[in-house]
Simulated scan of single mutants.
Amino acid sequence: MKPGDPAAVRSLFEAVAPRYDQLNDLLSLGLHRLWKRQALLWLQPRPGQRLIDLCCGTGDLALLMAARVRPGGEVLGLDAAAAPLALARRRAAAQPWLPLRWQQGDALATGLPEACMDGAVMAYGLRNLADPGAGLQELRRLLRPGARAAVLDFRRPDPQAGLGEATVERFQRLMLRRVVVPTARLAGLEAQYAYLQASLDRFPTQEALCALARQAGFQHVGHRSLAGGLMGLLELVA
């Protein structure tokens, strides 16, 4: 599978959707939920805000945000794949009081009005876009001036930056090869999770990612390493 190919990425997430949440819990020992809450701590959702969860998947972050924008707010969850959105809608149906809306669409070209959102998150989506820089530009376009955004994803270590970074890269590759892929194999999803390393190899390093965010027009660009440098959180202000 070619990393960043829109049709291939969409097909991948259609296939993994039924087991996606369970595998995330298993492979991260549940820590992905903590990392997502770190993203929300930066975002600071408030009642009355209109927020967007780009590449929302099965909707776990969108549900958390929707609980915090009541009353008067709304959360839009957008994803390119239909199967994760179907699961998100079923989860939201159990909490019909939450102000949620779902839309199938492209995070590179949402079709939404400019400066229509008070905040945004994107968790494990930027790495899968055909052009991460263009994804950050569309994210910036959607935000009102001063709005916050949190972008959570795997962090690509830069082995040229020193021994510490080289060690993190070796450990990350080892974990993907020896833990993630074999575990996914048991669920019949080896090919889908083997794609992780290929997608990471083309992802910008922390420094390059921050540069892309500045080029996209964000006035504040911060980056926080999580999980010993295996994950990264971009903290942005439009």
Rank of each mutant, 00 (worst) to 15 (best):
L112F: 13
A94R: 15
T58G: 10
V121M: 11
L12I: 12
M175K: 07
G228R: 00
G164K: 13
P204E: 09
D106C: 15
G125A: 11
R19A: 15
S11M: 02
L54Q: 10
A15N: 14
G229L: 06
L189V: 03
G105R: 08
Q197A: 14
A130S: 14
Q49W: 12
L226I: 02
M122N: 12
L43H: 00
P159Y: 10
W35S: 00
L236C: 00
G125T: 10
S199N: 02
R50W: 05
V221L: 00
G4D: 08
D79C: 04
W35K: 04
A134Y: 07
Q215Y: 02
R224S: 13
L209T: 00
A83W: 08
T167W: 14
L34Y: 12
L51G: 10
L126T: 03
L163V: 11
R178L: 15
L126C: 10
L230H: 00
D5N: 14
L41M: 04
A67Y: 12
P204G: 00
G105Q: 11
R177H: 09
R173S: 05
Q206G: 11
L51K: 06
G222D: 00
A194Y: 01
P84G: 13
L233F: 00
T110C: 05
Q38L: 09
C55M: 13
L233C: 01
A134K: 13
L196K: 06
L226M: 03
G162L: 14
L126D: 05
R214V: 06
A238H: 07
L100F: 07
M1V: 15
A238W: 02
A211L: 13
C210M: 15
P96Q: 08
R46Q: 12
V69A: 14
G125K: 09
L85N: 11
M231V: 03
L31W: 11
P71S: 10
E165N: 10
G229K: 07
R156W: 12
L189Q: 05
L54I: 11
